[in-house]
Design a protein around this nucleic acid. Structure first.
Lengths: 152, 152
DNA sequence: TTAAATATGATACAACGTATCATATTGTGT
DNA sequence: ACACAATATGATACGTTGTATCATATTTAA
């Protein structure tokens, strides 16, 4: 598990290097925080996480900037529905992916990043177009309950 | 136009009366604010709107409570993606509607409430289920650009 | 008409996000 | 190796968003 996390970080590092981007210590910590916690975290939750796990006190400004960097390089996704951030699940495989659909557990913030099939996307896009709107991003976020949080 | 707004308010009033709910003056103002402005507004934008149009100074707490009431009675919808509120477009017709899909212009906050076809919903729901998640609400919100805001 | 229920106001504060300027770190050319 | 430029982070202060709590007003109903 831990080894796997390291592996993902390593992949991210390679990926950044190839792009001439710097995955600095702080940035690595924030990314690691999201990967290790294994769920979506808000910026302030990340600040707490980093403080507790790495003994770093990060000012909000820094975390927001770092998240912006990570998002720009597609290492994390911002979930607008929950106002939280989640590590991209495709860092290790090949880091190219179809349009993601995010299933967000409204109870525990666990997130599953799945791929929508093209037909469904076209459907949504069509419906929008007919109404005179253009999809700005086809990213779909849905409020869900995960298995562990489903009422018994 | 103005008459139409009044008509919608009237409908809402009837609707509430039938349910034994009170559409008070303040609540009517907030609802009217959303209808007249013809787009999604944040709670604080609504405070400003009411202040400017009705000369009412509403404390945030009141507005949030009122929005909660209006939402509970399906007179307004909360758009989690934008953190704004929008008047339900079905108050006047019959106020029963299928599962809504909201097309939100990220530039001007104009919102179109359309109905998704059942097949698409089933699709999304299936995809979620296969991933071990249950849709909490099938309400879909999509970031779009409306016609007027599309880059030329 | 008075008591209970409901609705709103007011104060204070917690959480979230950013503008701005200062400092530190890294990369580059000489 | 050095100095300069570019990039990254820190620190302070503040603006925005949302809520907890207790007080007051308004409506409903016995």
């Amino acid at each position: 598990m831990m080894a796997n996390v390291d592996g993902v970080i390593q992949q991210a590092e390679n990926y950044c290097k190839a792009k001439g981007a710097r995955l600095t210590t702080k940035r690595k910590q924030v990314l690691r925080g999201l990967i290790e916690s294994n769920k979506a975290l808000s910026a302030y939750e990340l600040i707490d996480f980093c403080h507790q796990h790495f003994g770093e006190k990060m000012p909000p400004m820094s975390v927001y900037r770092i998240l912006e960097f990570l998002e720009h390089h597609h290492l994390v996704h911002k979930l607008n529905l929950a106002n939280k951030y989640v590590a991209c699940t495709h860092i290790s495989c090949d880091h190219t992916h179809a349009i993601p659909q995010f299933l967000i557990c409204i109870n525990c913030s666990k997130v599953k990043e799945v791929s929508i099939n093209q037909a469904t996307i076209s459907d949504l896009s069509e419906t929008a177009k007919n109404a005179g709107y253009d999809l700005y991003t086809p990213q779909v976020e849905l409020n869900c309950l995960c298995q562990s949080c489903l009422p018994a």
